[in-house]
Structure formats: C-alpha cells, structure tokens
Amino acid sequence: MINHHPSDETILSYAAGAMSAASRLFVSSHLSVCESCRERVRTAEVVGGVLLNDIECTPVSADAFDQLMARIDSNAVETSAVNGVGTSSSKVASADMVGLPEPLQLLLDGGFDELKWKTVAPGVKQYPLPVDVLPGEKVRLLKLSPGFVTPEHSHHGHEMTMVLKGSFSDETGRYKAGDVQEMDGSVHHQPIADTEEDCICLVVTDAPLQFKGVINKLLQPFIGF
C-alpha cells in the first residue's frame, strides 16, 4: 500500500514532458508500481491533447502527405499491435532485483548487493546512477544503515526520494517501499532508517542540501550530499 505520492505539479510536468531525465526516471519508477498515479498522468495527458488541438496551425509542405505514404509503403510499416514493444528488456533480472521498478532494473548491472556502494558518511552509502543530469542535479541510490540518523538538513532546491527497500521515518511521516517524499527549501528534516534492514532509496536532488549547524557545515564538503 503506497501512502505518499508525487505532487500534482510533478505529475503534470511529467505528463507535459517538461522535466529532466533524472526526474523522469524517478517518476517513471514510481508509476511502474503505482496504478493510481498512472491514472493521474492519464488525466494530465488529456490537457496535452486539448492543447494540441488548440494550438495554431503551421502549414506543412504541399506534398507532405504523399511523401509520408511513400515512406510508409517503402518501409512496409505495419499497423501492428506489438511492433517494437518488449524488445529492450533483454536483461534477466537477478533475484534481488525482483520487485524493483523496471526503469531502474534496466539501469543497474546487478542487484543492490552487487553494486559498488561508496560510503559518504557513517551509516550512509551512495551509488550514483548513470543518467544524463542537468547542472547541479544528482540522481543516485542512497543506503541508510538501520537506526542511522541523517544529519538534520534542509534543501535549497528540490529533493525527491522514493523508498525501494526498507523504510524511513522523519518529521513528516513514515515512508515504505514505493512511497515518495518531495522536499523543498523550507523544510528541515532528519530521516532515520527505522527497521532492522537497510533502507535503500532513489533520490533526485536539483541543488546541494544545506546542513544545519557548524559541524555539519564542515562535514558538508566531505559528505557531498
């Protein structure tokens, strides 16, 4: 049961195709496990259809349709229901990737245990994902050890977190697999992995986090959050 979902403005921008690849990966990953958000996206896509209908017309060249049909006839493009779908998922999912959102499965070479995690602070490991990012943007997996308390921090930009395994809690509630947390600059929080297992999250940030307190500020360059 997923209790925390992406915001309306995130769903809308996803449907519009108006977000970075990293954010799109994030939202796709949530959609792959959340039917109710797929329905929200479909609603937002209706807006896209209406706006496409309402846009001004720019004439196409006079022979455009004839050219099109010539290309279709020469390519023997078929009106097939299955054409081109299902060919990219040739990777075989390893045992501990079962249940992982499919967009992520395609990005990872192995299960969580096989990834080359890098320690960024006591109790926190990260694995950067190979995705094109905008300047200042980061997309990675974070692994919090059980009971580990992240230094209290806030955000200059926007942070989206989705739990993949385990769970965490902070001032705003408890987050389990599939749950999404979106954070903006105004919020200070202190997440803690709250069960006996590691908490693994997909995290997209669009600006460096700001840690509270002098010691934390000194730690910041080292942690590199």
């Binding site: 977000m19 970075s20 690849a21 990293a22 799109r24 990966l25 796709s28 959609l31 792959s32 797929r38 996206v41 229901a81 081109g84 779908v85 299902g86 060919t87 990219s88 998922s89 499919e102 967009p103 395609l106 990005l107 995705v131 094109d132 990012v133 905008l134």
Partner: peptide, 17 residues
C-alpha cells in the same frame, strides 16, 4: 533534457499498451 536509458520510448510504449 537528456535520457535515462538507451531506449526510453520503451517505457512510454508500455504505458500506452
């Protein structure tokens, strides 16, 4: 915006099917 997998359209096609 960049892409997140080689054949990103795959996901959208799936969502449509």
């Amino acid at each position: 915006e960049g892409r997140f997998v080689q054949k990103e359209e795959f996901f959208f096609e799936q969502a449509m099917v």
